[in-house]
Design a protein around this nucleic acid. Structure first.
Lengths: 171, 171
DNA sequence: GATGAAACACTCACTGT
DNA sequence: ACAGTGAGTGTTTCATC
């Protein structure tokens, strides 16, 4: 565990899980479940946002409902040396790229692509393949999403300390 | 494009993008940007939630801030026939599994795993490998997340119709 | 961290188009 | 069917303790 850390207590974790479950719940409602007044909850939430623990509040949508019926993971191998920063720069303008990770192993990059249909995916893949520095690509088409959920927040079974605090790296 | 559909107009799309940008913004605020009264916005949001277009409102957290420093994608090959429903059932209780997709190609399943560190990942992988029906696994360790963003909602460059409506499949 | 008060937002029934 | 209005209630957000 890292020790260049601020401290997040049980109440903070509880507040965060409330907000993950429903980002629109009121401070008073959250306050009831964590036994705190609404202003106290607001101060903690503001602090969690400022510290970067909470990065945003967002609506999750069903991609299929909006017409995005196809997704794939594309393994990319670079031709020569490409910096991650540069790769992020060239991937950001491609709206079909919803996630990208540098990886270890057989390839250099794993790209998650969403598209309306196969034709749209093929078009997006072609745009990806013409990006400078990209060599081989290998696509894995997603047939169905079995599970898709937020990061769990409770690590107490692993490294929570006796007083319920966990280490948090300063950014 | 599917045609067993309800209709979502430009205003709905605009409302959805407002909520993706900030799930805690007020109906009045959204109403200002889409030129509608707060009750009208609420009615549309309620409808979008009931239709399943908006699946939830959630807080996004920085996994690193909560101590989850490791992630990997695991390609799984089944031993014999396993139903997707059964696979979902056995994966759901493993908290480290944050996403899982059935895929076409070399393997049957792609599993996204998050863990505190490598030791924790190894432990979660071991739990995954002992799941009945799972044969070979191949792990790809994530070095860094380059990009991670919601599905775009604007498909107008592809199949929006002249009146700005897009088809939406009934679930 | 709690309280109290003022400003603001939510939510309903109702009306109009 | 869908948008606006007004009123009552609940919520946010301060300053203060």
């Amino acid at each position: 565990m890292r020790n260049d850390s601020l401290l997040i207590d049980d109440i903070d974790q509880h507040i965060v899980s409330c907000l993950i479950a429903d980002a629109r719940s009121s401070y008073r409602e959250i306050g009831e479940t964590v036994a705190l007044s609404a202003p106290a909850v607001k101060r903690r939430v503001d602090r969690l946002v400022n510290e970067g623990v909470i990065t945003s509040f967002t609506a999750r949508v069903d991609p299929g409902s909006l017409g995005w019926h196809t997704q794939a993971f594309v393994s990319v191998t670079f031709r020569g040396n490409v910096s991650p920063a540069r790769m992020r720069e060239v991937l950001t303008p491609i709206p079909e790229v919803v996630a990208a990770y540098t990886v270890s192993g057989g390839s250099d990059l794993l790209v998650h692509i969403r598209a309306a249909d196969m034709a749209h995916f093929e078009e997006a893949l072609e745009r990806l393949r013409t990006v400078d520095g990209i060599g081989k690509t290998e696509s894995t088409i997603v047939l169905s999403t079995l599970l898709d959920r937020p990061t769990p927040i409770d690590r107490s079974h692993r490294d929570g300390t006796a007083d319920g605090r966990v280490g948090v790296p300063v950014r």
